[in-house]
């Protein structure tokens, strides 16, 4: 209930009115779970912007996967992350090395939920794409039937960059790619994912001439 209210009165107005989102190929987004959304991570707003792309009926199914050490460090942040956003906390430094750590994620997928993952790890330089971490490949190998949908955001790093607390309104571009599936090997999957993200990034660059300075 709390999550639905948060979605209706905070997420939607914030993303649609304060920011404004211009999504390309929106029809490629999943209409039901299970599914995994993979996005570049430039700002705390990434998660909210992604959530806003889904209809209200799916709002309670969206589960951002986030770092336990960051979001569970105090009670207020924990309440915000767990009860309002509905994150699944993971230990980021151990992820991938131990498949037991992925259990909450595979369980969520079995329940038909839609996971949001930021495989770059922490928020990088605005509008760039850091190296993708392998955890996503482990998850895909455990759930080979689940579609993995890449999304590239442009502009959120301008609105609320890392280290800033003041939000400045900007219209954000979201580029959604075709769904990918497990490819038999970790390397093949990571290559396909990286390539897909890179081509979405190229689209974003063509769309918006790079800013000077």
């Amino acid at each position: 209930m709390l999550r639905i209210l948060f979605y209706l009165f905070i997420v939607k107005p914030l993303v649609l009115i304060v920011l404004g989102i211009n999504a390309r190929n929106r029809h490629l987004l999943p209409v039901k779970g299970p599914a995994i959304i993979v996005a570049n991570h430039n700002s705390h707003l990434d998660t909210l912007a992604l959530m806003s792309l889904f209809p209200l009926s799916l709002a309670s199914k969206i589960r951002p996967v986030a770092a336990a050490d960051y979001f569970l460090r105090n009670r207020l942040l924990r309440w915000f992350a767990m009860d309002l956003i509905g994150i699944i906390p993971i230990e980021r430094h151990a992820a991938g090395k131990n498949s037991r750590l992925l259990t909450p994620l595979t369980e969520a997928l079995q329940n038909g939920e839609i996971l949001i993952l930021f495989p770059e790890g922490s928020r990088g330089e605005p509008e760039t794409l850091g190296k993708l971490k392998n955890g996503i490949a482990h998850l895909a190998s455990e759930c080979p039937e689940t579609p993995v949908i890449p999304v590239f955001f442009y502009g959120l790093g301008k609105s609320l960059p890392k280290g800033e607390i003041i939000l400045v309104p900007f219209i954000v571009d979201a580029f959604i790619g075709e769904a990918l599936y497990w490819r038999g090997s970790r390397q093949a999957f990571m290559e396909a994912l990286t390539e897909s993200m890179a081509s979405l990034q190229k689209l974003a660059r063509q769309n918006q001439r790079e800013s000077a300075g």
């Binding site: 404004g20 960059p161 003041i166 309104p169 900007f170 219209i171 790079e210 800013s211």
Partner: peptide, 18 residues
């Protein structure tokens, strides 16, 4: 907002834009 999203802005000017 539409204008600022179109034009190139400097990252240093975050708070100026605010």
């Amino acid at each position: 907002k539409e204008y600022l999203s179109l034009i190139p802005t400097r990252r240093a000017d975050h708070r100026v834009l605010f």
